[in-house]
Amino acid sequence: MSPVFDNIDQFVDGFLTSLEIILWALAGALPLGVLIAACRVSPIPPLRAFGTFWVTTFRNTPLTVVLFFCAFGFPELGINRSFFFFGVLGLVLYTSAFVCEAVRSGINSVPAGQAEAARSIGLNFTQGLRYVVLPQALRTVVPPLGSVLIAMMKNSAVVGAFGVGGDLWSTGASLTSAQGYPTFPVYVGGVAVGYLIITLTAGALLQLLERKVAIAR
């Protein structure tokens, strides 16, 4: 394990960079996913079609292909940004499809009678959504959305493997390939443990949250 402790500061740096990727991706994927979900349940057919197209595309394409597309495709179009930007962008696009599906299944899980009752007491579409359907949907959304987001945290490793420098994955890569440390302690003791800290913490927080908002239906 000494390769890990000798380079603990690099691992801490990598850990923080991974967190940075995750936070940016969260900030992008959550609103985008909710927006696409709104499209998919909206009364306007072309928006629904657009939402379906989006979800079908990004859910069935490997994240790796999305990343390659962002990083090699956009420069061809004259859009040049950092690798970090493209990496996070790919992760955001990919995750938004899953966020959308989690949110949508939550909305669908609200019994039709709820919305009917809302309408029959005179609430309009927006009000019904805002005061009746969404508050209930939110509770059902928490567990699946949580696992989507945890999956996203794990996928940040793919962004790292893709070549965004400085995160946990890249730290492991540079220690083993450039500095010749053995792979076993670096990856099992360092990289893997770093990701476990992130995902297990997130999992525990999620469980707390679930217990708080859970209702039996």
Partner: peptide
């Protein structure tokens, strides 16, 4: 379940 697949694949292929 808490580990990224890419890390596990790396462990399988290289470690």
């Amino acid at each position: 379940r808490g580990l990224p697949v890419v890390v596990l694949v790396f462990i399988g292929v290289r470690v």
